[in-house]
Write a protein that binds this DNA or RNA. Sequence first.
RNA 1: CCAGCCGGCCGGGUGGCCGCGACCGCGAGAGCCGAAAGGCUGCGGUCGAGGAAAGUCCGGGCUCCACGGAAAUACGGUGCCGGCUAAUUGCCGGCGGGGGCGACCCCAGGGAAAGUGCCACAGAGAGCAGACCGCCCCGCCUGCCAGACGGCCCCAUGUCGGGCCGUCUCGCCGGCGGGGUAAGGGUGAAAGGGUGGGGUAAGAGCCCACCGCGCGACCGGCAACGGGAGCGGCACGGCAAACCCCACCGGGAGCAAGACCGAAUAGGGACGACGCGCGGGGAAACCCGCAGGCUUUUCCGGCCCAGUCGUCCGGGUGGGUUGCGUCAGGCGUCCAGCAAUGGCCGCCGAAGAUGAAUGGCCACCGCGUUCCGCCGUCCGCAAGGGUGGCGGGGCCAUACAGAACCCGGCUUACAGGCCGGCUGGCACC
Length: 111
Amino acid sequence: MNRPPNRLRKRAEFLAVRAGEKRRGRLFLVEALYRGDDGAPRFGVTVTRKVGNAVVRNRIRRRLKEAMRVHAADDMAAGSDYVIVARRDVLAAPFSTLKAELVRRIRGTDR
RNA sequence: CCAGCCGGCCGGGUGGCCGCGACCGCGAGAGCCGAAAGGCUGCGGUCGAGGAAAGUCCGGGCUCCACGGAAAUACGGUGCCGGCUAAUUGCCGGCGGGGGCGACCCCAGGGAAAGUGCCACAGAGAGCAGACCGCCCCGCCUGCCAGACGGCCCCAUGUCGGGCCGUCUCGCCGGCGGGGUAAGGGUGAAAGGGUGGGGUAAGAGCCCACCGCGCGACCGGCAACGGGAGCGGCACGGCAAACCCCACCGGGAGCAAGACCGAAUAGGGACGACGCGCGGGGAAACCCGCAGGCUUUUCCGGCCCAGUCGUCCGGGUGGGUUGCGUCAGGCGUCCAGCAAUGGCCGCCGAAGAUGAAUGGCCACCGCGUUCCGCCGUCCGCAAGGGUGGCGGGGCCAUACAGAACCCGGCUUACAGGCCGGCUGGCACC
């Protein structure tokens, strides 16, 4: 549970996930795509420049990474990729709210 | 104590739990991902964002490209003088101008007497100077006042007084025409020096004194520049951030530079194997005719008609490695220098990511601010106020902002705070 999940590294990988299922939420949008194998799940974070300057974007990405690592990693389905498109509200939201929202959206497809 | 000026510095700390990246050591030499190149996985230690990492505005290193050297032209940049630096549009020290009582601050600060151009609006006139009002002179006209002369009339008949008319002269008001005048009004960012006196019809550097201005022998300074005997009645407006002239500097692109490793697939080349519809021309390339195929079918028209497989080679893309942090490096003593800076010696080693590490959560302390109480001190008759200390409570725990090849500058943003020097006031000794 403590090991951080694998990350998406290439722009092509992010673009591929855009074709998958989209789940909108108050704090962020989650895109999910089943790759077709049963390898480890991966995730990535997208924060556009519209959200804020570099400090703001870094902080949002780090909070989401930490929330994924600690609370939501085990909820991801094997063989699936997830992209979290963050909104500015992630910056000020309490950490407990953030992790609850993440768990809810990640589990969304599993049923 | 109050008000202010300048310079330098900091940009929360400690701890706990869970994580991330790089390097080094140990272990394993095994497994996993990948076609390959290559990458990942264990344990321990060390290190891990800023004063601006920002804007990407200058300068340099480094890399590649171009180029015989050099110079010139074009284009771009810079622009008081001297120094410093690898270098600059940077920094330091001076000079000049402007502001402030002062500490100090600000300045795109070469040439307008090489030339061209512009100076809107307003105003009479704007670089040729220029008469709108005003002032003055001359001429003419109307009116008024005064005087002189002449004529007529009144009566109290005067060496007196009064009235009317005409002519002339002086003055004044007004009008018209001609001329003088740049002192005044008015316009403007700017109106061809200022003040006073003389002078004049009125005025005017027309003349004089002082101030200003220009030229300037000579003196000081490396220079910018400063001082200045004497001379000149004054001529020369501003804009070069309009063109321009002068002096100096500059080849271009940038780490997505560049170097290396290196697939699948498509395409290129070499070799080999199999194959190439018929006829004519031609050495061949190729051309013509017929046959065949495609264009839904017929005609017409158009197009196609030699490759396929195997091995090897070379280039490029995705991907990966490198470039990549030991340097114009930091700190300190001493020396030279007003300083920027330079030199000697000693010590230290300090981020290296690439959808991009340096984090998440929490506790305590502390800074700040505000309120209450007590104590000291100063002002005050008092009420009250200023200031300092201690104790307690509340609030907040934070600004601007995230390395992306490196370095030196500049500019911009910034909660809160610390230190030093200086100036002007007030009080006390």
